[in-house]
Write a protein that binds this DNA or RNA. Structure first.
Lengths: 353, 353
DNA sequence: CTGAAAGCGCTTACAG
DNA sequence: CTGAAAGCGCTTACAG
């Protein structure tokens, strides 16, 4: 069934059928109704490729989940507490707006080729990148494709410095710095002076922001940073557990720890528990992301809530906006991250003698 | 950059360029090399829509996640312990074979329209359906589209009864019945006689199989089924918790429970814990699915392992096979589910006096 | 308001 | 071995 067939059946030309389908204003109601009736009757659907080829949109958004580091650990990207909600929200939002989502995972630098192809082969109207590490070369290549692109979690200053702030590009971040400061201020307000950190990858925007905010807040209050309390957890449960074990065995430990994500925070609590160290009484813990699980563990995890859903929604909306216009535009959005106080952060510390 | 441009640059015709791209045998190495060089140089990628329109494959597989029941509960389909690994495995397998994955979620019966459109608009070479409930009408409609279709977790007898076992269709199941029997036999072997069940949706293939196997095994051993021990948990944590609470408050309870999925099993353990009832000492629990979390809880959950990864991989492979041939074929695959014994199922019961 | 025609960028018989 | 031409199924100026 092609538009030609519908045209014959309705006694009009293909042109008119096309006009009806695309909702052109200059078609009389009567003609429109006639054509629509035939379309309904035969469950006709215009071939998406022919439409796209003739210059229409593809109504498809690309979603590229990037996981360059975690490859050896079994590739659980879609079961990851960070990626899964993104996929969820992007697909939901896009679907609700009538778009399909084309997914491809990037496990290696070569896989970016597939991302480029998706654009070059015109499979998508635009694409969303999530999980990218600091890698301005890749960003440059992608921006040069000159198609609507949204990057989640990337350093804007770098993009501006590299003059990539033109073309169809939007960057969406969360206010990780502010959220971390809020968490740190809270711990300090409780009386903590020895505060450690479980860090995430520093070559990631959020990893860097969270670390910098930790350092800055400590400095601001004149609190010394003990290097042996700053642990490289790589955003991973396993690494965090290993580092925590080392810390505990060293005999010296802080009274509180800020973890750059909840997976690490939860892992830390587990390790402490195994060693008979009580959370929050003997060590206060605050995580980041506020994953689902955070409110269901014992003790319930205090955490900085990442506005994942809003970010995903905004990403889809940006793509759609950019598709609608030929104007080049660079835009950026930074959504607030809010501290959720639960049990793991504990109460005020007793005054020191 | 179009094939025409490449042709000019290489000093050949579009036909030849196309032959090179599609690896036709009758192109001399020399010509081939010449064309390939230009293609490389200009990073040329053939327009996917034009190719598809001219009769080539789309190199895209549809993945349709269906969640008709859980809508009100916040639509966490991609964070669900059942769906997420499927998405993961399908995307990975498809990507590895050079296919993109087009995703659309189905939250309502109307959303199936989008699934049909994806086929009708020729956006995909074939599609995979996961999470479908018993609904032969939908299956019929989809099969009639006459495109490669793989259904995960569906009753084959129904498909055969309805004469849908022709056309490009494959059904992939796990041996839920056998897996459940194994779990039940294990509990009975431990000495349990009062065994309850937390059921999943019975209008789901796996929900039905797991329930039937429970009943059959009880009957086989001449053990009475106490209706008040058969709980409707709807595959959901919340429902399972509510039902377990009711059960406990009733004052009478079985010595063991088999749960149709791990979410419910874990939820049951939590509730029992809150009531000070020890697992496995006072109640043995076995779940189904063997989700990631199962081996990390306290106590570690015994569970029947669903061969999720193999199923997803098989699904993608089936699609690809069907795309490759014009022959109609119906095939089915049933992968084994294996009992993983951990702590929650406990030890042998003491002999009754 | 509407039809004939050109064009989107490929593939593939067809002919040589 | 290779090119000219038709065709895939749409959209959209163009002309009337």
């Amino acid at each position: 069934m092609r538009s030609e067939d519908i045209a014959k059946l309705a006694g009009v030309s293909r042109s008119t059928v096309s006009r009806v389908i695309n909702n052109y204003p200059n078609v009389p109601e009567e003609t429109k109704a006639k054509v629509l009736k035939v379309i309904e009757e035969y469950h006709y659907e215009p071939n998406s490729f022919a439409r796209a080829l003739a210059g229409k949109r593809t109504d498809t958004i690309g979603l590229f989940a990037i996981s360059l580091s975690g490859k050896e650990q079994g590739n659980r990207i879609y079961q990851n507490n960070y990626f899964a909600p993104f996929v969820e929200a992007v697909v939901d939002t896009a679907n609700a707006k009538g778009f399909y989502v084309l997914i491809h995972t990037v496990y290696s630098r070569e896989d970016f080729q597939k991302v480029k192809q998706a654009f070059l082969q015109k499979r998508i109207d635009g694409g969303i990148l999530v999980g990218i590490q600091k890698d301005i070369e890749i960003v440059r290549e992608l921006v040069q494709l000159n198609a609507p692109l949204v990057i989640i979690d990337y350093d804007i200053t770098e993009i501006i410095a590299e003059r990539l702030d033109k073309g169809h590009l939007a960057v969406i971040n969360s206010k990780d710095y502010d959220g971390t400061v809020e968490a740190m201020e809270y711990l300090i307000g409780l009386g903590h002076r020895d505060i450690g950190m479980l860090c995430g990858e520093r070559n990631t925007y959020s990893g860097k922001e969270r670390y910098t905010a930790y350092v800055d807040t400590m400095n601001k209050h004149g609190l010394p940073i003990n290097d042996s309390y700053v642990l490289e957890g790589h955003f991973s449960k396993e690494c965090a557990a290993a580092e925590m074990n080392k810390l505990i065995e060293s005999g010296e430990r802080p009274t509180a720890m800020f973890a750059a994500n909840d997976d690490m925070a939860l892992s830390a609590i587990e390790v402490l528990h195994e060693h008979g160290i009580s959370v929050p009484d003997e060590m206060a813990i605050i995580g980041f992301d506020d994953i689902d699980l955070a409110s269901r563990t014992v003790p319930k995890l205090s955490s900085v809530k990442l506005p994942l859903y809003d970010m995903s929604k905004a990403a889809v909306q940006k793509i759609i906006n950019m598709v609608g216009t030929t104007d080049l535009s660079f835009s950026t959005l930074s959504l607030p991250a809010e501290l959720m106080i639960r049990d793991s952060s504990g109460k005020s510390l007793p005054e020191k003698p």
